[in-house]
Simulated assay, not measured.
Amino acid sequence: MNLIAKIKDLLLIVLIYFGFSQMNFAQNTDETCFKTGADRPELYLPLLKNKSVAVVTNQTGLMKDRTFLVDFLVKNNIKIKSIFAPEHGFRGDADAGEHVKNGVDTKTGIPIISLYGDNKKPKPDQLKGIDIVLFDIQDVGVRFYTYISTLTYVMEAGAENGVEVMVLDRPNPHDGYIDGPVLKDQWKSFVGMHNIPVVYGLTIGEYGNMVNGERWLKNGVQAKYTLIPMLGYHKQKRYGVLDKPSPNLPNEKSINLYPSLCFFEGTQVSVGRGTDFPFQIFGSPWTKNLPYKFTPKPNFGAKDPFLNGKLCYGENLSGYPEDLRELNIDWLLKAYSNYKNPTQDFFLKNLFFDKLAGTDELRKQIIAGKSAQEIKESWKKGLENFQKIRTKYVLYED
């Protein structure tokens, strides 16, 4: 990288640090020059030197040569006091929603603290003596995928305890577009903490910058926040992930379909957990008019999958060719119209569907027989308002 490029990136970090997030820096989009934040140690190692560090990461915290970030930091004499693990655990092998235990990394001997279950936010004693929390996780750019919620809690704890948060940025597989209903306050939860649409079109580093800049942390506090940007990243391109972000997103196909199919998690319809095609198929025992058949069974990614052992009828989307740049709710409407079960409603009684949607309006629109076009039309105003916020925090070519 030439001297001008180095100066530009250092300037970007300084501007982010001081809150000038609206600056949009053009970057080299030649994929041969693309680097994640983790692959730019010349930017972050000097900032970590002689500091006491905690790392928030999982199995996706890899460098281009597949070196694990934690191992790289230890090799470079960075003092890591602890590792914080998000949903699915440090090695990414826990089921969705499964309680993740604390432990010790057997390779490095570093203590592992779970940030899932009862301890979603680092406690003051867990940050005692820490100078910087380094965050490096591959996200998928969808509101109900909980890594952005973990980042939010880490930033909040950092702000409250005077600890800096540094994010190594990574690509968003659903970048460059926004779609879906914007979350309303009454439906806030760990699967939706902020008033944003389902797909929000920001990298995880940009997202953290937005949370900080808009003062969305508790009591309006702001974290000391440093973003290590990617090199040569373009929001309209798609970059392969180095490892599966979670057990049931095993490949690009499942990641591509995830924003559209995850709504089924709030219904009596399986999304393929307990099969070879999680988030690539959908079906239930009560949609018998649909052509594809499968039976969920326990496996590595789902120890007790929904509809375990029951024959399901649905659709197989594993060969779906389109790179989705919008939510496809036709599958949801098709499943609803084909659902025939006199004893159980299509939507789960706990209304988890509404938490995923961020509103009860989508469920009511489906019940009322609204078309996909009518439903999407109702999202427009909310998306237009969010776009005004999003634009302030876009750092890469869009």
Rank of each mutant, 00 (worst) to 15 (best):
K81Y: 03
E164F: 05
G208H: 08
S149I: 06
E98Y: 11
G205Q: 06
K120M: 11
I113H: 15
T146N: 01
A157N: 05
D125Y: 15
D139G: 08
M166E: 01
K81T: 08
M210N: 10
G192H: 07
D95L: 13
G103V: 07
V100L: 05
H194Q: 12
N102C: 12
I196A: 06
T106H: 12
M166V: 01
V163C: 14
P122L: 15
D95F: 11
A85N: 07
D175M: 03
I80T: 00
G201A: 05
K107M: 06
I132H: 10
M155W: 10
I110Y: 12
S82Y: 06
I132C: 04
M210K: 02
V142T: 12
Q126I: 10
Q186W: 01
F90H: 07
D125S: 14
Q138C: 13
D175N: 14
N119G: 11
P197A: 10
F135H: 12
G201F: 04
K101W: 13
I132W: 13
V142G: 02
P171I: 02
K128A: 10
I110W: 10
T150N: 00
L134R: 05
G208W: 14
D131P: 00
H88A: 10
W187Y: 12
Y145F: 14
V140D: 04
L115N: 02
L151C: 08
G192R: 10
D131H: 07
L127A: 04
S189G: 13
G176T: 03
Q126W: 09
I148A: 11
S189K: 00
K123N: 04
P86V: 13
T108Q: 11
P181E: 11
G205Y: 11
F144S: 12
D125M: 05
T108V: 11
E160Q: 14
V142K: 01
R91V: 13
N161C: 05
I113A: 13
E87Y: 02
A96L: 04
H174A: 05
E87L: 07
L134H: 06
M193K: 04
S189Y: 06
T146Y: 09
D169V: 01
Y200C: 06
D93Y: 10
N102G: 03
D185P: 00
E164Q: 14
V154G: 06
G92S: 03
T146S: 03
N209Y: 08
E164M: 11
Y177W: 14
V198H: 05
D179Y: 06
L134A: 10
V100C: 03
D125F: 15
F84R: 07
D131G: 09
F135L: 01
K123S: 10
R170N: 02
G117I: 03
L115Q: 02
G158C: 04
I112R: 01
N119P: 00
Q186V: 03
I113M: 08
N212P: 08
